[in-house]
Design a protein around this nucleic acid. Structure first.
Lengths: 160, 160
DNA sequence: ATGTGGTTGTTGATGTGTCATCTATAGAAG
DNA sequence: CTTCTATAGATGACACATCAACAACCACAT
């Protein structure tokens, strides 16, 4: 998927290639499995689940839309589209907020609360099955480490 | 993104959570950066690049469509749509194949060859910048290892 | 030759993500 | 109060992925 016809100035070593290929394959593969489970078990997409689970763990099952977007690191646009779809299915509701005429909040409906409550334990099991249980403790630790390193590096780059 | 309101039967330990969060964040984050670079440097999407780079490394810059789909682990449908878009931009061309009346091949146009040739080294640099150069050798090794473990486990599960 | 089943590749519908753009409001400066 | 800029959120156009359905063809049996 990534070897290219004319090697550039500084091509990849074999171990770099291995890591890069693993990186490219791993995530789509595992995530597809988890997403498939989630959809079969609970009828939710990953995006649905993420939104529901954040709202489900907030006080009053509600949050300011922009705050939700920032917390999830989603664009406002993406979230707005997603909420429109979820609102049509009746799992969330939008409400205007008094203190700011522009603002709005999302609120979980009862149906939404039920959904996330039932979906969560199944999802956790699925994550175990497809990822966590497959890996040794030191591999899990390295994953977390790597995540940290990459996040920091990205943050540093952002300021530049 | 994944703590949920009502703990299930077997909730995640702290280190499992760390690994799981890292997993969920890492990939979209890094890939978005790489995709952005690719688009700015070369005007290509990741899908474009993947198709071009495979074709670019084949003999005659051509391949049977179904073989390409299988090699890339894409559905025929996905590839067909992608090829339609790429054909409209003139970077690939479809050709009927004599030996099988159903079949077709994709061929890189000259413009396509130029594109992947110019894009490849920049893309490699980008991958280094955002991923490889940030990680220690043993972290890279663990990534490759983890990829291998997960791939095997998935294969085993498939047969069940 | 004819039917049957499997393969190749395309298509249209639908769901989703991104980008640019828009409206409405907030908030500060004059 | 007006004007200017920033922010919240929605929207429409487009790129992309998935799914189900489809036409055309192959292979092989009868």
């Amino acid at each position: 998927m990534t070897p290219a016809p004319e090697p550039g100035p500084r091509w990849l070593t074999e171990s770099e290639q291995d890591a890069w290929y693993a990186w490219r394959r791993m995530f789509p593969l595992v995530n597809a499995e988890i997403a498939r489970d989630l959809n079969q078990d609970s009828g939710l997409s990953e995006a649905d689940y993420d939104v529901l689970s954040v709202l489900g763990s907030t006080d009053g099952h509600r949050m300011r839309i922009s705050a939700l977007a920032e917390l999830m690191r989603w664009s406002r646009s993406r979230l707005s589209h997603q909420l429109t779809r979820m609102e049509q299915r009746g799992v969330v509701r939008r409400e205007e907020v008094a203190s700011d005429g522009r603002g709005a909040e999302v609120v979980l409906t009862d149906s939404g609360v039920t959904m996330i409550t039932e979906a969560a334990p199944l999802h956790v099991e699925s994550v175990r099955r497809h990822l966590l249980d497959a890996l040794a403790p030191d591999q899990l630790r390295t994953l977390a480490e790597v995540g940290e390193v990459l996040r920091e590096r990205l943050g540093a780059r952002r300021k530049t």
